[in-house]
Design a binder for these strands. Structure first.
Lengths: 216, 216
DNA sequence: CACGGGATGGGGGTCAGCCCTGATGGACGA
DNA sequence: TCGTCCATCAGGGCTGACCCCCATCCCGTG
């Protein structure tokens, strides 16, 4: 019987180590590669011939979501499980959109993670209980209003801007960092705020911190 | 030989489980209690007769720092190790202030965590390498300027203002809440920013979240 | 009592955040 | 090829954030 070959990506070595112990203790699972950020994860996915990638959502350089998008584009055969600190509908739906088969909260028990791995490898999507509620609520609402998913998701560029704003950079600094005009940063910020229904950088920052996009 | 009895507090069950595997694998360490938030940790410290409390810094209900303050007040015999995602001087110093003997980043290797536990139990403070740099820099600066640590620099009123700012309120809203003039709020904010050496509300907000003054 | 710190304000200034309209070029799918 | 989405940018306007100097009042302490 073949073991499921796992790529494990989390920026905290200690957490990674703990997860590895949990996974390696199972007879049917085997961690064959580790990554400390999104970019490493993408590279590791290319080389490791893993069957399953477990990606933390909050990582430097490239978030788990961006990495998932990239991995599922370059290596469609790899199943992806997103690991998240936050019980957040927005991120759950976005995970599915970027090609992940499952979404697991860090607050679940280890048995749930193992079950998620196995379900994913069987080709079944894994939904953590809270997400089911969110899913149902969403479908009900869409049904009631007869519309499709509001698609209020941010573009990659916009996510980049969100990070920089939430890290405390002014529009001018962001413009210099990205080598674009302040006006464009302005434009992006306006679009972001409008999409997320927020009113200013401060609210956006709190959101980004909650979502694990940046550190406080 | 007696094992070191450990209280492990982290809001993510998965992470907690992983850490427990790391710790329980050692012959001289033993996890005897777990907690999923700061309040639970305080309660567990009262009951568990633990020797060492490992507290994640970011937890609901009560942050690791608040819990540490409470635990070291109620049970001074328990050594405390703060576990943090953030390589941040401010946080590090606050940890020491609330009675912790060590500060360990989640990005360190498992061996470093084990070494931190043992050093703490030997009565030695454990400093992760980056913190040493910060410590030295701080001492140098204090030495140069010939002043001592201005602890708890903010007045009660100012802390009230900080909270309101960090919760996303505008100066106008704060003025209405406190029934004072916008100008006074302005004045307070200016004093606060000057005292903390920060430049705007956004930086202040991130500080307040890190310090556990407000929820993200 | 006099002095200092804390809280409260006013006047007046600069600058950045935020929003609107409108426009262009490139990429990508129908 | 055409429409759509994304990223890019300009001009111009409003408001709030942030800063300066200064004044008042209360309070506790030397």
């Amino acid at each position: 019987m073949n073991k499921t070959r796992i790529l494990l990506a989390d920026d905290h070595a200690l957490v990674r180590r703990g997860l590895r112990l949990i996974l390696d203790a199972e007879p049917d699972l085997e961690v064959v590669a580790e990554a400390a950020d999104g970019a490493e994860a993408v590279a590791a996915a290319d080389e490791s011939e893993a069957d399953l990638a477990i990606l933390d959502i909050a990582m430097p350089r490239m978030t788990g979501l961006q990495a998932a998008r990239e991995i599922s584009r370059r290596a469609p055969g790899i199943r992806i499980l997103i690991l998240s600190m936050y019980d957040n509908e927005q991120y759950f739906f976005e995970s599915l959109k970027v090609g992940a088969s499952g979404y697991v909260l860090k607050s679940v028990a280890d048995q749930d993670l193992l079950e998620a791995c196995r379900a994913t490898m069987r080709g079944e999507p894994f939904l953590y209980p809270g997400a089911v509620t969110a899913l149902i609520r969403d479908y009900l609402q869409r049904d009631r209003e007869g519309e499709r998913i509001p698609d209020s998701i941010l573009t990659p560029r916009e996510e980049e801007i969100v990070k920089l704003i939430a890290e405390g950079n002014s529009a001018k600094e962001i413009a210099e960092t990205l080598v674009i005009s302040v006006k464009t940063v302005d434009r992006h910020r306006a679009n972001i705020l409008q999409k997320l229904g927020m009113r200013d950088r401060l609210e956006l920052t709190r959101y980004a911190i909650r979502a694990g996009l940046v550190e406080p």
